[in-house]
């Protein structure tokens, strides 16, 4: 990878290292899709992990929106620009083309209006990066088919009655939504359950089966 070497103590943009440390590989994949020095809005920024990664390893002007007060306070106390807000409502207040990238990492499935949120992202940013758990993964299918139960996995650890995830989708569902919104898929990465990339030259149906998480880079057509 073509990134500058990280100073000691600085976050490292290396999937292998992150995987070994038990960190979120999808964040590295997301960060890798963002051009250095760009303006980024992270929707659902949590405690600011990705914001910090983007600021320190990519030199981005990175800002966040986060619903939880705890997450916002942790982020602001770390010196990050985070706004307490609800993606389902507050994205409407951002002007067109305000950012180079708008990121939604592991949050799409928790929004009330996924389609509206994605539309807003493509309006506010020139590009949208979305990562989400793939409900089409073979283990989810197995849970439903064999056990007749909603899947509970490392990435989706909560039971259906307490999870904030209300809009699950599969990789193929997401591709269909992107087509519906007339967005171009510039890049797509699927990660298997151990955080490794599913081989690139596989058809969608294989990705949909083997990918436990997916990361998409979308642009507006035209």
């Amino acid at each position: 990878m073509a990134f500058r070497e990280a100073a000691p103590g600085e976050p490292v943009l290396d999937e292998g290292v992150v995987r070994l440390q038990g960190g979120r590989v999808d964040l590295v994949v997301v960060a890798e899709m963002v051009a250095p020095g760009s303006r980024v809005l992270d929707v659902g920024s949590g405690d600011g992990e990705l914001l910090e990664l983007l600021a320190t390893t990519r030199g981005c002007d990175a800002r966040g929106i986060e619903l939880s007060r705890e997450g916002v306070n942790a982020g602001v106390a770390r010196g990050l620009a985070v706004v307490q807000g609800d993606a389902d409502v507050d994205l409407a207040h951002y002007p067109d083309d305000a950012f180079d990238y708008v990121i939604l990492s592991q949050t799409l499935q928790a929004t009330r209006r996924p389609r509206w949120v994605l539309e807003q992202m493509l309006r506010i940013g020139r590009r949208a990066v979305v990562s989400f758990p793939n409900f089409g993964h073979w283990r989810s299918r197995l849970d439903l088919m064999v056990n007749g139960r909603m899947p509970v996995t490392d990435n989706m650890p909560m039971s259906w009655y307490e999870t904030p995830n209300i809009h699950f989708c599969t990789i193929r569902d997401f591709v269909a939504l992107a087509e519906l919104l007339d967005a171009r898929i510039e890049k797509a990465v699927a990660l298997d359950s151990s955080g490794h990339r599913v081989r690139v030259n596989m058809p969608w149906w294989v990705w949909n089966l083997l990918g436990e998480q997916a990361v998409f880079l979308l642009t507006r057509k035209g």
């Binding site: 002007d61 800002r63 007060r69 916002v72 306070n73 982020g75 602001v76 990050l80 620009a81 985070v82 706004v83 307490q84 807000g85 507050d90 207040h93 951002y94 002007p95 305000a98």
Partner: peptide
């Protein structure tokens, strides 16, 4: 946000 300013906001 509408003016593109760098802003943090928290409700304590």
């Amino acid at each position: 946000n509408a003016s593109g300013a760098n802003v943090s906001f928290t409700e304590i």
